[in-house]
Nucleic acid binder design. Structure first.
Length: 258
DNA sequence: CTTACGGCCTGGGTGC
DNA sequence: TGCACCCAGGCCGTAA
């Protein structure tokens, strides 16, 4: 691989990226929570393990294309691959992050993350929430509790499970937690199958838009009817985030905490 | 320790 | 035409 960089203020150590990627191979591409993980193998046969972490933030895109393809605005990383294609990182807002982990270095970024919601079993899931007095919305967004959930899938899951985002973890019944567990798994499975939610400009590595936004029941649907009960969808700030919910399907917790 | 909250980063969209 | 403002996700500092 060969690397060219544009703006680098979202890259932890740009010099290290240039140095370590050049001449290396990508031996695997994985996902860990919201991180795209590229496992690197050096071309000279040395055996040190280096890993490239890419967080797309809100507007980050990783694409591969022929090198002669016109360069989209806000493209800041160009990697020439040995098969002739070019891998490009584009990020309008630069809320994304790129970081190189060297050889067993401090693995704090990934090590602090919670369980993968697509793999966690119900018992572990319940244990993670039922002992907490924070709002369920904050807990689901907390990457140390579960890794990978963002605002969209949190709201959609809470709607499916009929749980108000302001409920406290410890106040949610086992029956409700069971519903939430199933809701999260079904929402994520469906969203992955439909290649994600293209609200503004999200695309996958081939440039395809996702289609899960067509299935959103609450997210960005303030003022529209709930498809289950016809009440009007509301938006409130919960845990510092816009939160969309149905006030009838997802009843307010008794205690008012504003 | 846990929880809540405000501020910061950036730039497209919106509304005046 | 210009411009102030909002908002997004993650993270950090601070306070209770």
């Amino acid at each position: 691989m060969e690397v060219r960089l544009g703006k680098t203020d979202f890259i932890e150590d740009p010099a290290a990226i240039e140095r370590e990627l050049t001449g290396s191979w990508i031996s695997a591409v994985r996902r860990h929570g919201k991180f795209v993980v590229l496992d690197l193998k050096s071309g000279n046969g040395a055996n040190e393990s280096r890993t490239l972490l890419i967080h797309l933030g809100m507007t980050g895109q990783i694409r591969t294309c022929p090198p002669e393809e016109p360069i989209a605005p806000h493209t800041h990383v160009f990697v020439s691959l040995d098969d002739g294609r070019e891998m490009r990182y584009t990020d309008i807002r630069r809320f994304g992050k790129i970081r190189l982990l060297e050889d067993g270095g401090p693995e704090d970024t990934l090590g602090k993350l919670g369980l993968d919601p697509t793999e966690v079993n119900e018992k572990e899931f319940v244990a993670r929430l039922a002992t907490r007095r924070a709002r369920v919305k904050a807990l689901l967004l907390d990457q140390r509790v579960l890794r990978g959930m963002g605002n969209i899938y949190t709201d959609e899951s809470l709607w499916r499970a009929r749980i108000h985002p302001r409920r406290l973890g410890a106040n949610i019944s086992k029956v409700e937690l069971h519903r939430l567990y199933l809701a999260i798994r079904s929402v994520l499975a469906e969203a992955i199958r439909l290649r994600g939610s293209s609200i503004s400009d999200y695309v996958d590595a081939e440039g395809n838009r996702g289609e899960f936004q067509l299935r959103h029941r609450v997210y960005q649907r303030e003022g529209k009817e709930c498809s289950r009960c016809r009440s009007v969808i509301r938006r409130e700030i919960v845990a510092g985030r816009s939160s969309y919910f149905c006030p009838r399907c997802q009843p307010q917790p008794r205690k008012r905490l504003t």
